[in-house]
């Protein structure tokens, strides 16, 4: 039998890089999270705080609000992306004239930097020269001001995320649909199943692993969204779009509350890991069942 040494050797560079630039910082954050450390407080240096930071966190209204808001954002935007993406992917499976053109134009947002996405949407929505407020006012009489109305800001951020990421969801699902075996579908149609039945009892179950994978990836990224939202609304109005990534940024960077911010970061990491782990388990279960 092949020796394991070779296998480990092939894995080694990957693990080494991840350990140094990934795991080591994690340990440091873990360590800092146990201290009171703000260079601009009255006591300089790090003060041992044990789990006090976490104790404060579970009662911190602003933090919990922000967490809840992030969850809502992730849920809403990922749901929309998934349904829209599935619909579009299904239309793309069949070949039709213009398909390639549509697909190519449609994936453009995918290559844009989040910070550029935020900037672009800001150009679209600034009253005074952005077309969205102008035409909403002209055609529908809607007073659209991101800096004033919390609901509009939240919806716009969701819309921006959908705009940015649905192409990715569509492409992944399309890849899954393309790779799916055709025989069961054809057989079912021969047997007289209608479209809905085929979709519900064949397509969905067969696509389950891909769907879970997409949810996993999108959820993971939606929960840590910062750049584009920061560029568009900077978390405002008030705290209406201050998602957890922005909240942590504010605590760690302008406020320089390193200890508390680190603890916060780890707590969010914990929630994300639990959520994704559950999805991962589900993914593994689906995989096993099929074998």
């Amino acid at each position: 039998m092949r020796s394991n040494r070779m296998g480990w050797a092939l894995l080694a560079p990957t693990l080494a890089i991840l350990a140094v630039v990934g795991f080591l910082p994690f340990l440091y954050v873990l360590y800092v999270g146990l201290f009171d450390w703000n260079p601009f407080s009255n006591q300089l240096g790090m003060q041992w705080a044990a789990v006090n930071n976490y104790r404060r966190l579970v009662f911190d209204g602003a933090f919990l609000d922000s967490l809840w808001r992030t969850g809502l954002f992730a849920f809403v935007s990922v749901s929309i992306e998934l349904s829209l993406g599935f619909l579009l992917a299904q239309t793309l499976v069949k070949n039709f004239p213009g398909r390639t053109v549509f697909r190519t134009l449609y994936v453009l947002p995918l290559v844009m930097a989040p910070i550029a996405v935020g900037a672009t949407w800001r150009l679209l929505t600034i009253p005074g020269f952005g077309p969205i407020p102008y035409f909403l006012d002209k055609w529908f009489g809607i007073d659209y001001r991101l800096g004033t109305f919390a609901d509009q800001a939240f919806l716009t951020v969701v819309l921006m995320d959908v705009w940015h990421w649905t192409p990715f969801v569509t492409l992944t699902l399309l890849a899954g649909l393309t790779a799916m075996p055709k025989e069961p579908l054809e057989q079912a149609q021969v047997d007289g199943a209608n479209r809905w039945q085929v979709f519900r009892y064949l397509t969905i179950p067969m696509m389950m692993p891909v769907l879970l994978t997409v949810i996993f990836i999108r959820l993971m990224d939606a929960l840590r969204v910062v750049d584009e939202v920061f560029m568009l609304t900077s978390g405002g109005p008030g705290t209406a779009t201050q998602f957890i990534g922005i909240h942590i940024y504010r605590v760690v960077v302008p406020k320089t509350d390193y200890g508390y911010g680190s603890a916060m970061s780890l707590l969010v990491l914990y929630f994300t890991i639990v959520l994704c782990w559950l999805l991962f388990i589900a993914l593994a279960q689906v995989g096993k069942q099929r074998e």
Partner: peptide, 12 residues
């Protein structure tokens, strides 16, 4: 995971 979760709820 359970340890952390229970501790957090406990603190709250």
């Amino acid at each position: 995971i359970a340890w952390i979760g229970i501790s957090l709820l406990w603190m709250r």
